[in-house]
Simulated assay, not measured.
Amino acid sequence: MRKLTAGLFIAADGVVESPEQWHFPYFDEEMGAAVGARFAEADTVLLGRVTYDSFADAWPGREGARGEEGEMAKALGEARKIVVSRSELEFTWRNSEQLKGDLIEAVTALKQENGGPIGMSGSISVVRALLAAGLIDELYLLVHPIAVGRGARLFEEGVDPIPLKLLSSEAFASGVLHTVYGPAGA
């Protein structure tokens, strides 16, 4: 079975919404390497439509860049990109397709296919649904040392508990804590 990993930038108060407004002061080589390594392993990327749109606007033009940025852009470009959306989509970025059918059924089938790891970034509503269904094998949280104070949190109030097990953690010089969680029963 293919491994599904999801990664999110998260504030110390649990906010995951609009990281472009608070994340960048903490981005450094350590974080870039951590994010890049996860995507370098993945041959398939699962994204919500909003995250896909932001990636498709940013990454294709960087494929010719040198260093880690160019390597990550090339890896993302070559990966199979599956986009979750209820609306019919048209794609401009190569190797992109729309997820068809029910999210949980389609991702369960995707994990059964031959291939390497499946990576996710952002896509909060998709991550929530897949966590609740027990389909995410590793949850990478880059916890930023900032309390944003408002915005959507990863775990909404009133949902059933999702027991997790800490698989690893590392503190970056920027103060960001890189944590990796798996299902508690694993």
Rank of each mutant, 00 (worst) to 15 (best):
L141V: 00
W22K: 02
G61I: 12
M1I: 08
E90S: 13
E138S: 06
G115N: 12
L103K: 12
D13R: 09
W22S: 01
G158N: 05
K165G: 04
D57W: 13
L135K: 05
A129N: 13
A106F: 06
I118H: 03
S174E: 07
W59G: 03
R153Y: 09
D57C: 06
A58E: 14
R128F: 11
A171S: 13
E97G: 14
F9W: 03
G77I: 05
D160W: 11
L110M: 10
V15I: 14
G116I: 11
P145V: 06
T51D: 09
E88W: 06
W22P: 00
P25E: 00
A40C: 07
M1H: 06
L76C: 02
L103N: 15
M120T: 06
R80C: 11
E17F: 08
F9P: 00
G48E: 10
K100T: 15
D28N: 15
G185E: 15
K111M: 11
D28W: 12
I82G: 04
D43F: 02
H144L: 03
I104R: 09
E97S: 15
E90N: 05
S87W: 01
E29M: 10
Y181W: 14
L46D: 06
M1D: 06
F172K: 12
S125N: 14
Y181I: 08
H23F: 14
E88D: 08
S123Q: 08
L130A: 09
V159R: 14
L166S: 02
D160M: 13
I104P: 12
L141W: 02
K81Y: 15
W59H: 01
Y140R: 13
E20Y: 04
I118N: 01
L164P: 06
D137A: 06
A42W: 02
A33S: 14
